[in-house]
Simulated assay, not measured.
Amino acid sequence: MASATTFFDFTPKDKTAKEYPLSQHKGKVILAVNTASKCGFTPQFKGLEELWKSVSQKYPNKFVILGFPCNQFGGQDPGSDEQIQEFCQLNYGVTFPVLGKTEVNGDKSEPVYEWMKGQKPGLLGLKRIKWNFEKFLIDKDGKVVQRWASTSKPESLEKEIIALIEKK
């Protein structure tokens, strides 16, 4: 999708393999995270859910977290889309949208991930995702404004997210 200019130009698949137009979130601040169910960072689901609830309570309909399950790092999300959804809800009470299983690197990489990596390369300008739970912060206009490594805890991002929501 070479003509894409914002995050909202993409349509990945949801948990039922149906199109999920990101344009439905236009005007909101987005935190996009590649997730996994069997990873050392998996407990971040708890922090992500708390962040989602905290920010959404203060700023209703102005923020969304989108989980993109990925099995490309050590086979740490091997389940079906249905199993992944069940895992997230049963173990962490996840209520934010978790989409269908996604590839974030390589030839079959989801176009929105190719675009985000191009907008905000990682350390040393690398345009690949290093591991599960990397996070991209998207502003209300659909531009990537920040990228965090897997080690960044969700709760540490709240101040920056709120500043972006409040930005005129």
Rank of each mutant, 00 (worst) to 15 (best):
S80F: 06
V29R: 03
Q85H: 14
E82A: 12
F68C: 08
V33W: 02
I84K: 07
F63E: 02
P12M: 04
S23Q: 06
Q83I: 11
P60K: 05
F7N: 01
L48C: 10
P69I: 15
N34T: 11
Q76C: 13
T5W: 06
G40K: 01
L51K: 02
P69E: 01
K28P: 12
V33G: 09
K28N: 09
P12H: 09
Q85M: 11
G27C: 02
V64F: 00
T11Q: 09
I84N: 07
E19G: 13
Q83S: 15
P21E: 03
D9K: 14
V55E: 11
Q24Y: 09
F73A: 09
L48W: 07
K62E: 10
F68I: 08
D9Y: 01
I84C: 10
T16Q: 08
K62V: 03
D14S: 05
F41A: 08
F41I: 03
L22Q: 05
T6Q: 11
P12Q: 01
P60H: 00
P43E: 12
H25S: 06
S37G: 12
H25D: 08
N71L: 08
K38I: 02
E82I: 09
S56T: 11
I65G: 02
W52Q: 15
T42N: 03
I30C: 02
G47Y: 15
C70L: 07
D77R: 03
D9N: 14
Y20M: 09
I84R: 02
K13F: 05
Q83Y: 07
Q85R: 08
E82H: 12
L66Y: 00
L48N: 01
K15S: 15
Q24I: 06
T5I: 14
L48V: 11
Q72C: 12
C70D: 07
F45Q: 06
K53V: 14
D81E: 09
F8G: 10
K58C: 03
C39S: 12
F63T: 08
E82S: 04
F73N: 02
P69C: 13
F63M: 15
T5K: 14
Y20I: 13
F8C: 07
T11W: 00
G74S: 12
K38V: 04
V29A: 02
N34Q: 07
T6I: 13
F63G: 06
T11F: 01
Y59S: 05
F68M: 08
Y59M: 01
A36C: 04
T11I: 13
P12W: 06
K13P: 01
G47K: 04
K18R: 13
T11S: 14
Q72N: 15
F45S: 08
I30K: 13
I30L: 14
F10N: 06
K38G: 01
V55N: 05
T5P: 10
T6M: 01
K62M: 08
C39D: 00
F68E: 00
